[in-house]
Design a protein around this nucleic acid. Structure first.
Length: 777
DNA sequence: CATTAGCATGGAG
DNA sequence: CCTCCATGCTAAT
């Protein structure tokens, strides 16, 4: 390319070399001079057909992610005709202008791209950034969704920048070009909005990454940061899938070190995918594409989570969650609490896909105890289980009342589930007034969630009787959907009725206090190599579930009881996010092996199935009896039952347990096998885990478990930090006791501990401590 | 009898 | 038509 064209009287086009009688100005060379072309070549150039004419056989052809137009990316001639998308892939300038109002590549690095220096620099940045985002760091990313994606992109950038010529690179790019899936599919189109948004985000992101100011352009989005919200959700999800993969690739290719986390990411979780990608023609897309395609395409299928469940965690929230720790937070999903979720029943219905994607598989209806950390750093033990429902399952978290109360959540509020990466611990956050999106459904994609929160809250307060506020209405609060008024599931967002309004108001008010900046949108901004990223982690799927699956069968409990430390880990699904069967969290590689999104997804799916899979026909679970120490039993729905002073067996057991870490308990369960098995074993392992966790974490929490609380060994108390009694019960450390296996569990726990401790931030106080179990009532 | 737990029902997507 | 899931129903305690 370079030959100094001007000087020569030969057409700059190496494939032409026609003597130039009248040099025609062609493209701008790095030298600052224009390439001299012959009439024909010049004509082709001007018509934008130069590459089509002379570079057809050259590598580097990519499809515009938006319109699918073929663009030769590995050529200086067309370099100005496209932009590199953060998420990978490219977009023709026309589309870019339309959507982003961005300038062509040149704008970024401009011609300098070609220069080795800059190019590398860019690439480095991107890559590093991505990595950091993806893998390391505490950095939560926000906007990043796109970035994340971008993370993968990096390689792309590299390829692009560095080796434009390489075909692979191009392909990858194309594939990568998640950002906007130009998808041909109509279905995708549906997604478009979100995508576009994402795209815009991405654009922004990229600009940032690059260092280019992106500002004004995206008025649409308003604050990017906030938008990030969306992104996070939508985009993130959609993107997330990508990024994760990207990451993996990167990792592999480069260092591969990402760790389990990455793996998770691989699984595209959640996502969403709206977009399908492929289309571009990038054709053979590499794995990336494949992944993408799957993830996205499958959005519906497996991984996808409905938009409403997409995590919309703000940076601040992430920061809170992460606390001072270095833990990386991976938003998994969120759910607007329904009346029943927030009710005293203490059962939080988990979206099936979310549960299956991010939580360990459950073979038994009884499920197992799950340790969940709240924003304060407290650990709560919740029973993760399911009910057979039709031919499916309905997943629920039992014993959430204390937790919800502590967070002062009400119907309409949103609970978010995230995972602390290193630890793999599950973290439950919340958002009080749901920042409803303006428009519910459609909105999901676009809605500016950021703003909403506030608005929502405000709106509520001032709320019109009508609930007229559009925004308000839109607010996802679904207070309750009674028969008449259901809010669609999707629609969950209810319009507020008078009553609802009231509820909301309360919530809002409370929330306001709570809300404040932190929770709501703040994306965490991470600066990587000088580039700001709003972090947001997508949720990678975790699929840890599998682990259990095999084991559990009979009863999870039993397994756990028996379980080795590993099992225990698994038991704490959250804790070991990574958990995958034998995979050690430590062995990233093992995880890697698992990698392929597909694999993960499959695993998740399979696991579920493999094991008991979907709804097993379960006989009615025996009622948990007094002696039963299982979490469920202990729960306080009736905290009332179990007060700190309570001397019932359960409480006593708890106390004992708490006091002596390893106490064995005996399985009391009179209950039927199932119940028993479940309860005890789980508990045990669980308890142990908890303890460790807590211990590790911060003992601060005091537990509480009701009775136990008394004793509460505090520091050592069982894990459940329960603030107050309520929780305590749930947690039940005691279980540990029962399962003598505890010892093992302990070992396990120990294993876990460290991580957990890490994770644990400081347990602050419970916020409010919930009052007793009253709420439950 | 009150409460709870498990399951069923049925609307919505 | 199927799946999801919020809520209701009711046996069990």
């Amino acid at each position: 390319m370079d030959s100094s064209s001007a000087s020569t009287k030969v057409c700059f086009n190496s494939t032409c070399k026609t003597a130039l009688e009248v040099p025609r100005q062609g493209w701008l060379c790095r030298t600052g001079d224009f390439a001299d072309l012959c009439d024909r070549c010049s004509s082709a150039f001007k018509d934008g057909k130069f590459c089509d004419t002379y570079h057809l056989n050259a590598s580097g052809w990519r499809c515009c992610e938006s319109c699918g137009k073929q663009i030769h990316c590995g050529c200086i001639v067309s370099f100005h005709m496209f932009i590199l998308l953060d998420a990978g892939g490219i977009e023709c300038l026309n589309c870019a202008k339309t959507e982003f109002i961005l300038t062509p590549n040149p704008t970024w690095p401009s011609a300098s791209h070609f220069l080795p220096g800059p190019a590398e620099r860019i690439r480095d940045i991107s890559s590093k950034n991505w990595r950091s985002i993806a893998g390391s760091g505490p950095v939560p990313w926000r906007q990043a969704p796109s970035l994340f994606n971008a993370s993968k992109v990096q390689p792309e950038f590299k390829s692009i920048l560095g080796s434009i010529d390489k075909p692979l690179a191009t392909e990858q790019l194309s594939s990568c070009s998640l950002g906007k899936s130009t998808t041909n599919d109509p279905s995708e189109n549906l997604v478009n909005e979100s995508w576009q948004v994402g795209a815009s985000e991405m654009a922004a992101a990229r600009t940032r990454a690059i260092g280019v100011q992106y500002d004004g352009q995206h008025n649409l989005f308003g604050d990017v940061s906030r938008q990030s919200f969306f992104y996070t959700n939508e985009l993130a999800t959609s993107l997330s899938s990508l990024p994760a993969r990207m990451v993996t690739q990167d990792q592999k290719s480069e260092k591969g070190k990402i760790s389990g986390i990455h793996v998770q990411q691989l699984c595209p979780p959640p996502l969403v995918g709206k977009r399908i990608s492929n289309i571009n023609g990038s054709g053979p897309s590499l794995e990336a594409q494949a992944h993408h395609a799957k993830a996205r395409g499958e959005t519906r299928g497996r991984n996808q989570l409905l938009p409403r469940y997409w995590p919309r965690i703000t940076d601040q929230e992430l920061q809170q969650i992460s606390g001072g720790t270095n833990s990386k937070i991976t938003p998994l999903f969120e759910k607007v609490l329904s009346a029943s979720d927030a009710g005293r029943i203490g059962r939080l219905v988990l979206p099936k896909k979310c549960a299956e994607a991010y939580l360990p598989p459950i073979s038994q209806p009884e499920g197992y105890p799950l340790v969940v950390q709240d924003l304060k750093g407290k650990d709560w033990v919740l029973q993760f289980r399911f009910w057979p429902n039709n031919n499916s399952r309905m997943y629920v978290l039992e014993g959430v009342t204390p937790c919800i109360q502590s967070m002062q959540l009400q119907a309409g509020d949103t609970v978010t589930f995230s995972r602390l990466e290193p630890e793999g611990k599950l973290v439950m956050g919340f958002r009080k007034a749901p920042p409803a999106s303006p428009s519910d459904q459609g909105n999901e994609t676009v809605s500016t969630r950021n703003e909403e929160p506030l608005k929502g809250s405000i709106a509520f307060k001032s709320s019109n009787p009508d609930g007229s506020w559009s925004e308000v209405d839109k607010i996802p609060i679904r207070a309750k959907r009674k028969k008449g008024a259901k809010t669609g599931s999707n629609c969950k967002q209810l319009k507020l009725n008078g009553e609802e309004m009231l509820q909301l108001n309360v919530t809002l008010e409370q929330v306001q206090g709570l809300l404040q900046p932190p929770l709501i949108n703040a994306p965490t901004i991470v600066i990587v190599e000088g580039v700001e990223f709003e972090d947001y982690q997508e949720a990678p799927i975790v699929g840890s579930p599998t682990i259990f699956s095999t084991n559990h069968q009979g009863s999870i409990c039993s397994m756990e009881v028996k379980t080795t430390p590993e099992h225990h880990r698994h038991m704490l699904p959250m804790i070991n996010h990574a958990s995958s069967r034998n995979i050690d969290s430590e062995n990233p590689e093992s995880l890697k092996t698992m990698e392929g999104l597909d694999a993960l997804a499959d695993m998740a799916i399979q696991d579920g199935e493999a094991i008991p899979t979907s709804s097993q026909a379960t006989t009615r679970h025996p009622r948990h009896r007094p002696g039963c120490t299982c979490v469920v039993c202990i729960q306080p729905p009736s905290a009332t039952k179990h007060k700190p002073t309570c001397t019932c067996n359960v409480c006593l057991a708890v106390k004992r347990f708490t006091q002596s870490p390893m106490v064995h308990h005996d399985p009391k369960h009179s209950d039927k096998e199932v119940g028993n098995s479940v309860c005890d074993p789980c508990h045990v392992a669980y308890a142990d885990i908890l303890r460790h966790t807590q211990m590790g974490s911060g003992h601060d929490h005091k537990t509480a478990a009701g009775g136990s609380s008394e004793n509460d060994p505090d520091g050592e108390k069982p894990s459940t930090p329960f603030k107050s009694q309520n929780i305590d019960l749930n947690t039940q450390p005691e279980r540990e006791e029962e399962s003598s296996p505890v010892s093992e569990s302990i070992g396990i726990t120990s294993l876990v501990q460290e991580p957990t401790q890490r994770c644990i931030r400081q347990p602050k106080l419970s916020i409010n401590g919930i009052t007793d179990g009253n709420h439950a009532l």
